[in-house]
């Protein structure tokens, strides 16, 4: 196996700003091979975005406690100095955000923002950077690219903005693209276009993509592997096909069942997972999903289950994984 591009080992992130510490990420292990696309799936508050942001160290450092290890392209990210960190962000790993209108500076043109990012990392003239920006806009298939470089973020449609955001993220040819719910704020038809674009660019640039979403349908489109997060832990990880066809964690099964797909009849109720996610400031001692789980036993409430390898590349954190295969039918 080749050297992984990204390696998270026992990553924990605890926010200490509030009255009680909030355990947002509780021991995440994850690896990404070069050129691989992995989707992190989970509901709001499952820690997927916090994990993603920690890879760029974007969580507020004064108000959080971080332990574990983050290695990207041989760099020990959590131990980088201020200048090393700034050189790493954008050049080795870059990020696209859920709502590009909020993530782009409103008073700079898109062209200027791309030029700024390129000049920040590379010793090139503004004219060369400008040419590269134009080339990027064409690669993300923005029509009349030259004119759009002069546009401000609010002057473009949602889909075009997200394309511009992608162009900006790829400006310094990073190895890793972190995508934080990149299609959630878009119309359904535009979502597909952006996902397909991401997949094409991934091949073209040889990128690794770590992709955060709560939409399994979107994840299936682009991901090689999926990791399902719940209460700050990865509860199940496998290749995309296995997760969709043969999930073994009760939470994954619940997520898959609660999707609305075409076959839903009128009057038929959408299946849901009962209950709500646990309070991250007050996690139970055992499995965090036990209270909502249809298979929960006494053992589930006392100790958290460890990751268990079921097959090559398929891992699950569940004491009852032997019984889950039957439950899917």
């Amino acid at each position: 196996m080749t050297e992984p591009l990204v390696e998270l080992r026992d990553l924990t992130v605890t926010f200490t700003g509030g009255p009680k510490p909030v355990a947002a990420v509780n021991g995440v292990d994850l690896t990404l091979a070069p050129g691989e696309t992995v989707a992190l799936i989970g509901e709001s508050g499952s820690g997927k975005s916090v994990t993603l942001r920690q890879i760029l160290r974007l969580n507020p450092e004064r108000r959080s406690r971080v332990s574990g290890q983050v290695r990207v392209a041989g760099l020990d990210v959590l131990r980088l100095s201020g200048t090393e960190l700034a050189a790493y962000r954008g050049a080795v790993a870059s990020m696209i955000f859920q709502e590009p209108l909020l993530a782009l500076d409103p008073v700079y043109t898109l062209g200027d923002q791309i030029v700024e990012a390129i000049c920040r990392h590379e010793a090139v003239s503004r004219e060369d950077a400008r040419r590269r920006a134009l080339d990027l806009f064409e690669r993300v298939r923005i029509p009349s690219a030259a004119r759009r470089l002069e546009a401000y973020p609010h002057e473009m449609s949602g889909g075009m903005r997200q394309r511009a955001m992608i162009a900006l993220a790829l400006a310094c040819r990073p190895k890793l693209l972190l995508a934080d719910e990149p299609t959630t704020a878009l119309d359904a038809t535009v979502q597909i276009q952006v996902l397909l674009l991401l997949r094409d660019l991934q091949r073209e640039f040889g990128l690794s993509i770590l992709f955060v979403t709560h939409d399994i349908g979107a994840a299936v489109e682009v991901a090689d592997r999926m990791a399902v997060m719940y209460a700050g832990r990865i509860v199940e990880a496998a290749d995309a096909r296995t997760i969709v066809r043969a999930p073994r964690h009760p939470y994954t099964i619940g997520l898959l069942k609660s999707r609305a797909h075409g076959a839903l009849q009128k009057g038929q109720r959408l299946e849901t997972i009962p209950g709500s996610p646990p309070d991250l400031a007050n996690l139970p001692p055992g499995c965090a999903f036990a209270d909502r789980c249809f298979l929960a036993a006494d053992a589930c409430r006392t100790t958290p289950p460890a990751a268990e390898g079921l097959a090559a590349g398929h891992q699950v954190r569940c004491f009852r994984s032997a019984d889950t295969a039957a439950a899917l039918a």
């Binding site: 760029l56 200048t83 990020m95 500076d105 700079y108 700024e116 920040r120 900006l168």
Partner: peptide, 25 residues
């Protein structure tokens, strides 16, 4: 407090670079 400041940091801008954006805003 706006998200674009995180966006600027994610592009590798240092404090001085971010400050220029804050001033213009």
């Amino acid at each position: 407090a706006q998200e674009f400041v995180i966006g600027l940091k994610a592009r590798g801008l240092n404090e001085v670079g971010v400050f220029a954006h804050v001033v213009k805003n």
